[in-house]
C-alpha cells in the first residue's frame, strides 16, 4: 500500500471540503473501509499484540471476539489513535482508512477522530451538559458552526438513530447524567453519530447494561450497518453472531502476545471454523 503525502494546501482543501459536505447533507456519508496491516502494540516495552492484519469492509459490521486479555480493546484503540495517549504505549504497523495510513506524519489526529468515532464500555455522557448539548458536543469541539434549526435537526436525527428520541424528546435540556445506563449508552452513540463518522468503533458497548437496553442497542447497530462501518468488540458470542457480518477471533496464549487466530464471515466462523482453537471457543469450551 502506498501512503499518499499531502501538501499543506491539499490538507486545507480536505478540511474545507469536509466542512462544506457536512453543511449540505444530513446523513449520507460514505462509509469507509478500515484495514489494519501487521499492527503490533507494546505497553512499557511488553509486546501485547502481534502482527494483527484485518480488513474491516465498508458498511459492514465486524465483530472482534475472544477471551478477555487478548488485546481486542487495545487493537480497537489503535484504530482511532487513542492507544498512543496511554503513557508507555507504542505501536507498529499501519492502519489504512480508505487507503491512507492514519498514522502518517501529516495526518492530524483531530481529523482521524472525526472520521472514526468511538463508543466505550462504560457509558460516559458529559454530566455538565444537557442531553441536547451532549449530542452536539462533538460538533462544538470541532468548532463546526450550525444554525439553531440545523442543531435541532441533528439532535433529533441522531437520537432517533440511536433509539433514544422518544424517551427524551421532552427533556432535552435536562442534564446528561440523569439517565439510566442503557439510555446513557444510547446517548453516547448519538453523540458519536453527530459528527458523521465513516467508522464507528464500539468497545463492549452492552457489557455494562441490562438485557432490554442491550436489545435496543443491537437493533441500533443493525439499523446503522449499511450506513456506517462498525467494528464491535464483544465478549458475548451470541451477540457477535446476531449483529455482525464479519468476525475475527483473537487469542493470547499464556504469557504470549495476542493476535488473530482466524477471521472471516460470521457464518463461517461460527458454523465452520477452520482452526481448532476457534472451534473450541465458539463452542464454549473456554471463554
Amino acid at each position: 500500500m502506498t501512503v499518499k503525502e499531502s501538501t499543506s494546501e491539499n490538507l486545507f482543501a480536505d478540511v474545507q471540503g469536509r466542512h462544506a459536505r457536512r453543511e449540505d447533507t444530513i446523513s449520507t456519508v460514505a462509509a469507509g473501509t478500515l484495514e489494519a496491516i501487521e499492527v503490533s502494540a507494546w505497553f512499557s516495552g511488553n509486546l501485547v499484540l502481534e502482527d494483527v492484519s484485518l480488513v474491516m469492509p465498508a458498511s459492514k459490521v465486524t465483530a472482534l471476539i475472544g477471551p478477555s486479555g487478548c488485546g481486542k480493546s487495545t487493537f480497537l484503540r489503535i484504530l482511532n489513535r487513542m492507544h498512543e495517549s496511554t503513557p508507555g504505549a507504542q505501536l507498529g504497523g499501519e492502519v489504512l482508512l480508505d487507503g491512507e495510513d492514519i498514522y502518517a506524519r501529516h495526518q492530524r489526529v483531530t481529523e482521524v477522530r472525526k472520521r472514526i468515532g468511538m463508543v466505550f464500555q462504560k457509558p460516559n455522557p458529559f454530566p455538565a451538559m444537557s442531553i441536547g448539548e451532549n449530542v452536539v458536543a462533538g460538533l462544538a469541539l470541532a468548532h463546526v458552526k450550525v444554525s439553531k434549526e440545523r442543531r435541532g435537526e441533528i439532535i433529533e436525527t441522531c437520537l432517533t438513530r440511536s433509539g433514544l428520541w422518544t424517551e427524551v424528546k421532552d427533556r432535552l435540556a435536562t442534564p446528561g447524567g440523569a439517565l439510566s445506563g442503557g439510555q446513557q449508552q444510547r446517548l453516547c452513540i448519538a453523540r458519536a453519530l453527530a459528527v458523521e463518522p465513516e467508522i464507528l468503533l464500539m468497545d463492549e458497548p452492552c457489557s455494562a447494561l441490562d438485557p432490554a437496553s442491550t436489545f435496543v442497542i443491537e437493533q441500533t447497530i443493525q439499523e446503522l450497518s449499511g450506513e456506517v462501518t462498525i467494528v464491535i468488540v464483544t465478549h458475548n458470542m451470541q451477540q457477535a453472531a446476531r449483529v455482525s457480518e464479519q468476525t475475527a477471533f483473537f487469542l493470547a496464549a499464556q504469557g504470549e502476545p495476542g493476535g488473530i487466530v482466524e477471521s472471516g464471515s460470521t457464518a463461517q466462523i461460527f458454523d465452520d471454523p477452520q482452526d481448532p482453537r476457534t472451534a473450541d471457543y465458539v463452542h464454549g469450551r473456554f471463554g
Binding site: S40, E50, D51, Q90, L91, G92, G93, Y103, A253, V261
Partner: peptide
Amino acid sequence: GPVEEAPERVTRRPRRV
C-alpha cells in the same frame, strides 16, 4: 499459525508516532 516464532519477534520495532 499466525503466531510467530520467538526470534522474529525481537526484530519488530515500535513505530514512532
